[in-house]
Computed example of a mutant assay.
Amino acid sequence: MNEEIQSFLQYLQIEKNYSPLTIQHYQLDLNDFVRFMQKEGINNMVDIEYLDARLYLTDLYDKKYARSTVSRKVSSLKSFYKFLTKEDKLDENPFSLVFHPKQEKRLPNFFYEEEIERLFDACKGDTHKDVRNLALLELLYATGIRVSECSNLSLKDIDFSFHTVLVTGKGRKERYVPFGTYASEAIKRYLDHTRHVLVKGEHQQLFVNLKGGPLTDRGIRHILNDVISRASLTHKIHPHMLRHTFATHLLSNGADLRSVQELLGHSHLSSTQTYTHVTKEHLRKTYLSHHPRA
């Protein structure tokens, strides 16, 4: 079993270019399934049949897993057995007919424009911390890049001539994302007055922490939580909130869906279409709040 799993994980790494964290999640899901198989007395991955797959799904429900967790585990196993069929290790995918539980549809949370302004105001100041935080916030809002993508940016990725940043996204796919004047000025100020004072060592990461090392995903989340607190907003920040805000504001102001898809680095348009529901809901609430006969 271990040999088949390792072959699959290597396939995800080499051919699919999945990130180490994504591969780790696949491995955890597969390990969980192996434990279930051993409990059922099944010692070979290729001996699994459709009824065993159904039994595993029932076991997940009995353990009261969230629908999103069940959905992810089933998806991981579908991919794994699809790989085994492709490698001619078995004839049929036992998970191909297993019902994929629908995830709860939640509209992405975002900041309204006046809330964004309060966030920027909370970063105004002349300390190294304020200058760095404003540059970070401006770039995240200007580009809609993921927190993980932001933490991986290096100095060479910023092009002030064309006002673009080279971003390495999921599956190591690269894309150029433009940024505006506000972000440009904030980043230049950070580079001219702050980064060289803070940085320690020879690393080329764009954003650094107050100890001089590269700013991590966790560090960025901590900064955003601190800014939220200083702006006296009641939101609970999550890593994608500025990304959601970027997409929602673009669509609300007339941007076309395909352009937003490209800027976000989404492989499928359906991922971007989520934000059209957000803008429609916002319009509905505005109508109900302001129309005399609503």
Rank of each mutant, 00 (worst) to 15 (best):
F80N: 05
L84W: 07
D62K: 07
D52M: 10
I23P: 08
Y65R: 01
H25C: 03
K89L: 12
F80Y: 07
T85L: 03
T58Y: 07
A66W: 09
D62G: 06
K89E: 12
F33Q: 05
H25M: 06
D47W: 04
D88T: 06
V46Y: 02
Y26C: 05
F36H: 11
F36W: 15
T58A: 10
Y65V: 00
L77Q: 07
I42N: 01
N43T: 05
K63I: 02
R35G: 14
K64M: 02
R72F: 01
N44W: 03
L51M: 12
Y50E: 12
A53H: 11
V74M: 14
F83Q: 12
M37R: 05
D32I: 02
R67A: 08
Q27H: 08
N43V: 01
R67W: 03
F36E: 13
K78Y: 09
L28K: 13
K63W: 00
K86C: 10
R54P: 13
Y50D: 07
Y50F: 13
R72L: 01
K63G: 04
Q38Y: 01
S79D: 07
L21M: 15
N43Q: 03
F33R: 11
S71Y: 04
R67G: 14
M37Y: 06
D52F: 10
I48D: 02
L51R: 14
T69Q: 04
R67N: 14
K82L: 10
R72A: 04
Q38T: 06
L84G: 04
R35Q: 12
L51Q: 13
N43H: 05
D32G: 09
A66N: 13
K73V: 09
E87C: 04
S68M: 02
R54K: 15
K89Y: 10
K39R: 06
K78L: 15
N43D: 06
L57K: 12
S75L: 09
K86Q: 15
L84S: 08
K63F: 01
E49L: 05
Q27L: 03
R72E: 11
K39N: 07
L77H: 05
Q27S: 11
R35D: 14
D88V: 06
K73I: 09
A66Y: 15
L55Y: 12
L28Q: 12
L28T: 10
S76G: 08
D29H: 05
D62S: 08
S68I: 07
V74H: 06
R35I: 13
S68F: 03
S75I: 01
L84P: 10
Y61N: 09
D29R: 05
L28R: 14
I48V: 15
S75C: 12
N31L: 13
G41C: 01
F80E: 06
D52Q: 14
N31P: 00
I42E: 01
M37V: 04
K64I: 02
K64D: 14
L77S: 10
D52S: 14
E87A: 10
D88A: 13
S71A: 13
Q24P: 03
Y65G: 02
E40M: 00
E40L: 00
E87W: 09
Y81C: 04
K64C: 04
R67F: 02
S71R: 12
F83K: 08
Y56C: 05
T58Q: 08
I42D: 00
Y65M: 04
F36R: 11
Y56D: 08
V74Q: 11
S68N: 14
